[in-house]
Amino acid sequence: MRRRLKRGWILLASPLLLSGCGSEYVVLHPAGPVAATELHLIELSAAIMTGIILVVWALLAYILVRFRDTPNNRAPYLPNWRGTLWLEALVFGVPVLVLLIMAVPTIKKTYALDHIPSRHPLIIDVTSLDYKWLFEYPQQHVATVNYFYMPTGQPVLFQLTAHSPFGAFWVPNLGGMEYTMPNRVLPLWLEARRPGVYLGRNANYSGVDFWRMTFSAHAVSPAAFQAWVRQVKRTYRPMTEDDYRRLATHFDLVGQETYSAYPSDTFPERFREFTIQGLHYVPTRHP
């Protein structure tokens, strides 16, 4: 119910949104806890900021009507008014207060999102290449290109890197983005509560075809996930060094690909940085 109310705020905030709050508003339709937490913060800040905007608009409109330079304007004219202390304190105090209200949830949610709520998450190693996404499962030893499967109801740790210019891994329904950068590995955890196929894309310009670098995230029940892994292992051939080289060095678009294994040196061994705190998870290649 409180959610509803907050959602109502956003609706009030804009007739534009009112006319189109359908499922195309991916950010407003979270399918998992990370996106939901982020949406919470978005709604809260949107509500507060809408309040500020309305106050300023109303004040401006009132002043414009009341203090126009028209012949018979009876409003007081204060040609020597340079300031009044309490009013100046107020215009300072109000923004301070508003920002305090914003700051607390910002701190809380940002730290909260940094804790992956699982000691043994499923790990997916993500590499952005020009212009495709490579997903490797270090625990299951399978690999895919431009799509991946994940079990619902279970946090998934994405370890992100690039063998290309910077990219950004973004599945708006599941949560916010994180960059993929060469020579570095960055962590991001996401979780799907609802099964479904969610569109992901490269959110950072990395070349002429970056905007076509989409992938689909298939969230399925844990049993279906296990079945998918088994099926991949049975049906597909392993990725060879040549396969990887082709993916990494041809700057082209490819369709979806699936491999039942992959060479072990295609993902960086050494981590310059790894910043999920509270996780105490020391990444190793093949646990």
Partner: peptide
């Protein structure tokens, strides 16, 4: 608002 920016950036 940092965590919100993850979605806007």
């Amino acid at each position: 608002a940092v965590a919100a920016d993850y979605q806007y950036h």
